[in-house]
Amino acid sequence: MSLGKTEVEYISRLAQIEVREEDVDGVATKLSNILDLFTQMGAADTQGVEPMAHPLDAVQRFRADVVTEVDQHEKLQAIAPSVTQAHYLVPQVIE
């Protein structure tokens, strides 16, 4: 399976990863190779094999429904680029 320029641009936009114009062909080749590997794996007979949700053969553990975390917004916001009135500030998301 081979990906073209359009697909690479679409995928990079979804992933919010910038791919330079001159790199598009190279990325397309690499991604296509990965997909080829999956196509190759797809040839294996998986009849009756349950899809794996996690590589570890273990089940989820739980925590009790108790509040254990105190207010730490000052510490967490110390590394934020911009903060006002305890809100994280980001570029405007609506017009």
């Binding site: 925590r63 108790v66 509040v67 975390e69 207010d71 917004h73 305890a86 994280y88």
Partner: peptide, 21 residues
């Protein structure tokens, strides 16, 4: 009382970001 994946409180109307660990 606490979040689905953390021990932060879910009480409504708290000061901004005071219940986000």
């Amino acid at each position: 009382k606490s979040k689905i994946f953390s021990g932060a409180s879910t009480a409504y109307g708290a000061a901004p970001n005071s219940q986000a660990c």
